[in-house]
Computed example of a mutant assay.
Amino acid sequence: MSLPSLKDQFAALIATPSVSCTQPHWDQSNRAVIDLLASWLGALGFACEIQDVAPGKANLLATLGSGPGGLVLAGHSDTVPFDAELWQSDPLRLTEQGDRWLGLGVCDMKGFFPLVIEAVRGLQGQPLKQPLLVLATCDEESSMAGARALADAGRPLGRAAVIGEPTGLQPIRLHKGIMMERIDILGQSGHSSDPSLGHSALEAMHDVMGELRALRAQWQREFSNPQFGVPTPTLNLGCIHGGDNPNRICGQCSLEFDLRPLPGMDPQQLRAAINAKLQPLAERHRVRIDYAPLFDNVPPFEQSADSELVHLAEKLTGHAAQAVAFGTEAPYLQQLGCETLVLGPGDIACAHQPNEFLELARIEPTVQLLRQLIQHYCL
């Protein structure tokens, strides 16, 4: 088959919805996106392997060349949900507006794949000494099930991996972890005129939040990394629900919170510290307290500043490697033995926002950068 133009590839990917979301009414299959990428990469000579992760959800691993080592260019094939009424244009149609392309996923991060294909097209005919792998995953924006499945399979990929998440073409070698947790308290309802008739879940939760805030203060004293814009770990009390009427002792209360640990902080130790505070409160208030993650945590990520990939990316971009607060699939690729870096053309400030865009001026520098990375690791 003849490959579509770069712009037509962008348009086709954006017109193929692949929302992943914890809310079932939003969640969609990514298989049509995977099939598009497989057809284009197959036309360039890649051997394309589709890995089914869950019904309607799949990863693509496309390989050009063979042997150990090589380079992995990676990204996710899904997008977040969108508010169509807040967009100035159709979010599922590529729209050119001045010096930008607009569309859902153009920045975060379907648009990375056409740029990879463009980089490879410019190197056709040159024999590879080491393999080039293109990885497209599912469900990064929700459960990270695609990257987790790869890590669980334990199959080595390449010597180095670059994830094209939006970083403004600045190399990122550190990011915080993500823990989203839930605490449920079951007390005993009763008439509010007599406190002895019940055990207030709301009052118990008040003390739970006090302990969480105290732990947050402790962790912020103990852990700090000046490379991050927010140098300490954060804990956000996100939402709370409980009770039903002013004249009833609150019988049930739930809290959901978000914890962003720094590299070097162990999520299991953090959970153990929280659990140690909860049991005495349960006994004091005579309530039941259940604590569990909303989903598996994303580990903090750190690639050594002295690694070959970091030195190369700093040399090619002219920027020192930085740290970001948002999470990526980097820890899972690192678990497979890849030196890993996050480096892509978009801007994180417009990701997950109406009117998501990619600056046209970023296209050619990204293609050239990808070709230089391929030349270094594969040619």
Rank of each mutant, 00 (worst) to 15 (best):
A84Q: 13
Q130S: 14
A145M: 08
L92E: 14
P114R: 03
T95L: 03
Q97C: 15
L150W: 04
E141S: 10
A149H: 02
L133A: 10
C138D: 09
L133D: 05
M109T: 13
Q88D: 08
G146R: 07
L128T: 05
L123S: 11
C138T: 15
D139S: 11
E85V: 11
Q124D: 05
G111L: 03
I117Y: 00
T137M: 06
S143L: 09
S143G: 09
G146S: 09
L133F: 06
A145K: 03
A84P: 00
A84R: 05
A119M: 08
D108K: 05
E96H: 10
G125D: 02
A145E: 03
G98T: 10
L123N: 12
A136Y: 05
Q88M: 14
P91H: 02
R100E: 03
G105A: 13
F113W: 03
G125E: 03
F113S: 08
V134D: 12
F82K: 07
L150A: 09
W101F: 05
Q130W: 03
V120Y: 03
G105V: 10
G103T: 01
E85K: 11
A84I: 09
G98C: 02
L123P: 05
S89I: 13
W101D: 06
A136Q: 07
A153Q: 05
L104E: 07
D99L: 09
F112M: 12
W101T: 12
K110W: 02
M144G: 08
M109Y: 00
L115V: 01
E118Y: 00
F112A: 12
Q126L: 15
L128F: 00
D99R: 13
K129V: 13
T95E: 03
G125R: 00
D108F: 01
G98A: 11
E118P: 01
G98V: 08
G105Q: 11
G122N: 04
R148W: 00
A149N: 10
R148F: 00
V134Q: 12
V134K: 09
L86A: 14
F112H: 04
E85Y: 08
S89M: 03
A151I: 09
D139Y: 01
K110C: 11
A151T: 09
L94G: 10
P81N: 09
L135G: 10
K110N: 09
V134W: 01
F113R: 03
L94I: 12
R100F: 02
F112T: 07
C107S: 15
G125N: 08
C138P: 03
P81W: 10
I117G: 05
D139H: 07
P114V: 04
Q130E: 14
I117Q: 01
D108L: 04
T95H: 01
R121S: 12
K129D: 13
M144L: 12
R121A: 11
V106N: 07
P127D: 06
L150C: 09
W101Q: 04
S89T: 15
L128M: 04
G105I: 11
V134H: 03
D83V: 05
L123Y: 01
W101V: 11
Q124G: 07
L86S: 14
D99V: 10
G105H: 04
L94E: 02
A145G: 08
R148T: 06
P81H: 10
A136V: 12
D152S: 15
D152R: 15
T95Y: 00
D99K: 14
C138E: 12
P131H: 08
Q88W: 02
L132N: 00
E85Q: 14
S89V: 13
D139A: 12
R121K: 15
L94P: 01
C138L: 12
A151Q: 07
